[in-house]
Design a protein around this nucleic acid. Structure first.
Lengths: 224, 224
DNA sequence: CAAGAACCTGAATCGGATTTCATGTTTGCA
DNA sequence: TGCAAACATGAAATCCGATTCAGGTTCTTG
């Protein structure tokens, strides 16, 4: 599969036509295509989005597209990987400097929601990846969950998190929560002018925090 | 929109060509089309699935399709509503006879997972609905969440569930958890022969139960 | 059993999308 | 300045699938 090349975290950018590395001009064009693709895929979905629409949005000739990506599917996969990289960056950035491990988890969540509010494309594109390219979908989820899981194990070791929880299951549970709450309270919510909110409603955020704190905290009676 | 007719819970089945009610034969054909659509949409996704593939799978002539559904989108929407009805039935059935409200929530979850294991189409179809027909997607989630939410409020009233939780947020959180855990541990998991497991790995189920119990239980120190 | 209603059929129409390709333009460098 | 190498272009080839339609078959009822 053509996937294997794509899986490398920091791949060297090469022309898919000649296989040679890109010049500065080439890289800029590639980036404009990716940016246009993010907008078009998010607004229209994979199948409504056409190469023509993407190249028009990017202000680039139709034929040029194929100098940078082998196919519509190829640019879609590149986009998922790009978004994945960025959301994880946003999360880990939010977590640095947290006082304790539970606070770090909360901060990571906040980073996730901030990114979601700013890039609705993440949701739409990732969800659609299930059908367009299952491999990248798994990769996306797995990479995020790995981060959670490691954090949970560490927090269990220090006693900040209930040791009876299964870290893997818990990580997936947290991920699922975040995703559906983001969908419902960020993406579905619109103000009077039809704009989505910049962040989660405080009531919802508080409710979710309480839920997570309850779920993760060690049970009082079991502390020794 | 043509949706409004479809939203009725127990609609009368009519031919979309003549608008008249169906005979027994007609109903049987319609059902065969829906069953074929469930398989084909689940295996191939909306856009790979073609009307020809659906009618072939149903053993029915291509033209016949349009006697029962106006379009490809129409049968897709009908399918989502059908699956939604069935999963809710499966959940409420599992909940009857539970000793207390917390046990009922757990049982509802179990019913959800059982249905998921038996009908992987639910996931695939529902997830794709986000792009094909956002209205039915909302309807699907909203109907399920309403049930959770009502249960949570009742359980808070009796003191079985932490009163500090926001029922709506909590309901969406639970829904998201269930969805992602089902995806990861039912749909992604395959045994040696490539068959998906019939039910959740006990370790995972136990981990999830612990997580939910922690999250929902009233905090000890706040009991008076 | 005759005739109308309901149901069934698949070839042909039609629109729309991806991808190719022959040709033109810009850039970098000797 | 001149000439490769990179980059850019959009018309046309090609494919594919949703939907229509003109004409058949099966049921059912008076």
């Amino acid at each position: 599969m053509s996937m294997s090349d794509e899986l490398v975290e920091h791949e060297e950018l090469v022309s898919s036509a000649t296989g040679r590395p890109l010049t500065k001009r080439g890289e800029a064009t590639r980036r404009r295509l990716l940016e246009a693709a993010e907008l078009v895929f998010a607004e229209q979905g994979y199948h409504e989005a056409s190469i023509v629409k993407i190249t028009e949005r990017a202000g680039i000739g139709l034929g040029t597209f194929y100098l940078y990506f082998d196919s519509k599917q190829a640019i879609f996969e590149a986009l998922v990987l790009d978004l994945n990289r960025r959301v994880r960056h946003s999360m880990s950035e939010a977590m640095t400097g947290a006082s304790d491990r539970l606070a770090a988890e909360r901060a990571g969540f906040a980073g996730f929601f901030r990114f979601t509010a700013e890039h609705p494309a993440l949701y739409r594109v990732v969800r659609e990846a299930e059908f367009v390219s299952p491999e990248v979908l798994r990769l996306h989820y797995t990479r995020i969950v790995e981060g959670y899981e490691a954090g949970l194990r560490a927090a269990q070791a220090t006693g900040d998190v209930d040791r009876a929880l299964d870290p893997e299951t818990t990580a997936w549970a947290l991920m699922g929560m975040g995703e559906l709450i983001g969908m419902r309270f960020l993406l579905w919510e619109r103000d009077a002018e039809g704009r989505p909110p910049a962040e989660l409603d405080p009531k919802v955020f508080a409710g979710m925090t309480r839920f997570i704190d309850n779920a993760l905290a060690p049970r009082a009676e079991e502390e020794k």
